[in-house]
Design a protein around this nucleic acid. Sequence first.
DNA 1: TAGAAAACCTATTGAATTAATAAGCAATAA
DNA 2: TTATTGCTTATTAATTCAATAGGTTTTCTA
Lengths: 143, 143
Amino acid sequence: MKISTRGRYSLRMMIDLAQHYNEGYIALKDISERQDLSKKYLEQIIPFLSRGNLLKANKGHLGGYMLAKEPSEVTVREILESAEGSLTPVSCMDDCPNLCDKCEDCLTLPIYKGLYERILQYLDGITLEDIINRQVSDFTYHI
Amino acid sequence: MKISTRGRYSLRMMIDLAQHYNEGYIALKDISERQDLSKKYLEQIIPFLSRGNLLKANKGHLGGYMLAKEPSEVTVREILESAEGSLTPVSCMDDCPNLCDKCEDCLTLPIYKGLYERILQYLDGITLEDIINRQVSDFTYHI
DNA sequence: TAGAAAACCTATTGAATTAATAAGCAATAA
DNA sequence: TTATTGCTTATTAATTCAATAGGTTTTCTA
């Protein structure tokens, strides 16, 4: 039940891009230095975010990356879903009758579906703008 | 973000034990046959559930396993937490200043904490009794 | 009181995944 | 035209996953 580094690094990279929105294209070198993440590893993560239409890129001198949408329009769900592939807690949910033929009678599947709904609902409610502007306490119930 | 087979099999085993509660000790052989799970693999999973004080065992002939508590007193959270070790979405939450020294300023940690709270709240609300008695639709929002 | 049946314990393994590193190619603005 | 940047593919070491295997110990019962 852990989010992989690919998901976590993706979120940090996207937050960094949101913090430098309206500054034109940002070189990956700058992001990797600010966030202390391997530039080479980030390069491998980017295709996942590009497939989700989350990034615009510019090659060549003074090139770099930019958010494809405004920070207020990018949700954490989109980012983690693009990076991780799927946020379903069990893989049989992604391709049900093929991966397991007992979906119909499965007593546990509804539990995982309910969990998945709660996860999506929560992550859908947080945008990059929220992360930059909100207080730490806004995401948790207490303190 | 996937629940491992250890967690999934644990839940299925515990549901099976709940369905045969008040029938005395249930042999692992019976559970593995009914649930179509490797008996040898279940043997390795059991210590995790025992550590969480979820099981009573009896050795020898006519021995087996029993729920340590009534089905209505066992939550899915307890089961998955025992099996998986921890349900935190990022490992730095388990041992914060040691695994990462930037907890204080981390913009992403509050998001993961909020997610963790939602996950626990949901899984805490489901008991083995619920799973056996409730309708499928009780866990999901729609349909 | 032997013996079958069950839990319990430890080691091994093959496969997959993770988290990188490495080395170079392609595009482009100054 | 050259430095800078994104892009692509290959390789790898370590770890985790999901099991299989083989044996020991306990205990009921016939």
